[in-house]
Amino acid sequence: MDERPTLDDIRRAPKVLLHDHLDGGVRPSTIVELASESGYEELPSADPDGLRTWFTEASNSGSLERYLETFSHTVGVMQTTEALARVAYECAEDLAEDGVVYAEVRYAPELHTRTGLSLDAVVEAVLDGFARGGRDHGIKIGALVTAMRHQARSMEIAELAVRYRDAGVVGFDIAGAEAGYPPTRHLDAFEYLQRENAHFTIHAGEGFGLPSIWQAIQWCGADRLGHGVRIIDDITEREGPDPRLGRLAAYVRDKRIPLEMCPTSNIQTGAAKSIAEHPIGLLRRLGFRVTVNTDNRLMSGTTLSEEMAKLTEAFGYGWDDLQWFTVNAMKSSFAPFTERLELINGVIKPGFARLKWHRA
């Protein structure tokens, strides 16, 4: 009897999501409605189904330029407090429907100020949407405020993260093209966050290799790595029974530095060739602190349940593996320690136990 979890089974499991972009998960129908309300006239299609198809094709085109173009449309309609609060609320609703019990969702406040909103107004609108969505749908969402690594506003955004950390912002991030924009360009922001005892993750090891990961950890002090896929470059003899870890890979594993991996997105951006060849398989086998994430649910046409189902199919994972990924994520979250323990022991482990018992 095959006890491998099905997609429907996985949807019922209590899951944890650490790497999800707010502007990468907007409903196509919402984009169309917000465009009509705001007078945004640049959508490639005014039909929600046609727009969804366009996003999928653009994201899988192999063209980075076309992939990045997709975000111009989601960000383009997220320029009012009402729009931001709605998108955040719907994000909470969609994640809860997929069985996510805790999520950290990131966005760059500086991208939502084109019509005159202040950074504070942007943050407050998103927090309002998350709070209402969380109450209505039984999910806890913490916000990560992101600075764009090619801009020079990281200190402002870091101060924003600290200013709102008691109101729902759980941490800070930098995102954008890695090549040519190393994390050390924002060292002052990271040093400020460390002085303020604040949490932060850094996009590293996705579009650029080991130097990006090394700088994020050793210079900037990242708590987690956004993606971190290219840590595989520091592991040799991968096909043998005893893969050899380089100094950096060994350090990442020894220090239990969480890797926020997003399998489908990693394939779209060229960081991995296929699900079956994704580094997550080897890294899980070697005991790295790996987590499974969605990155951009709209662009990748995915959910967290679907990401886990793909890994189950590719690597033969069972309930114990999926629980391992989930506990990893909850342990690695920026939620308070007591909240992490309550969710692990009171929700996640009992939830997986019920599913395993039901399938037994």
Rank of each mutant, 00 (worst) to 15 (best):
F208M: 13
G281F: 07
A276Y: 12
G133K: 14
G346M: 03
V347R: 15
L311R: 11
Y192R: 15
Q323L: 08
R12N: 13
L160C: 03
Y192W: 14
E104G: 01
M308L: 14
K331D: 11
L187H: 15
T312P: 01
D49T: 11
I280Q: 04
T201A: 12
V290M: 14
G351V: 02
A204Y: 14
I232Q: 05
E57P: 04
R185E: 04
E57M: 02
D295Q: 05
R244D: 05
R114S: 13
V105D: 08
F288W: 13
H227T: 06
G116W: 10
T312A: 10
T294G: 10
L298F: 11
P336T: 10
L111V: 01
G116F: 08
A216S: 15
H278E: 00
D94L: 06
H199P: 06
P350I: 10
Y251R: 12
A271C: 04
A360K: 11
N296L: 00
K273S: 14
S300M: 06
V26S: 08
T294W: 12
A147G: 08
I139V: 14
P182Q: 02
V122K: 04
N296G: 05
I348W: 15
E260M: 09
T80C: 00
G281R: 10
T291C: 12
V100K: 14
H186K: 11
T184H: 15
A329G: 15
A35M: 03
Y89L: 04
E69R: 10
A314H: 14
S36R: 12
M1R: 15
A152D: 15
A309V: 08
A189W: 09
S332V: 07
A96M: 13
E307V: 02
K349V: 05
P211R: 04
H186M: 07
D223Q: 08
V327Q: 10
P336F: 13
F352G: 00
K349Y: 03
K273N: 13
W324M: 05
L322M: 00
A85P: 01
H358Q: 12
R52T: 03
P336L: 06
N293S: 08
Q194W: 06
F315M: 01
S212W: 13
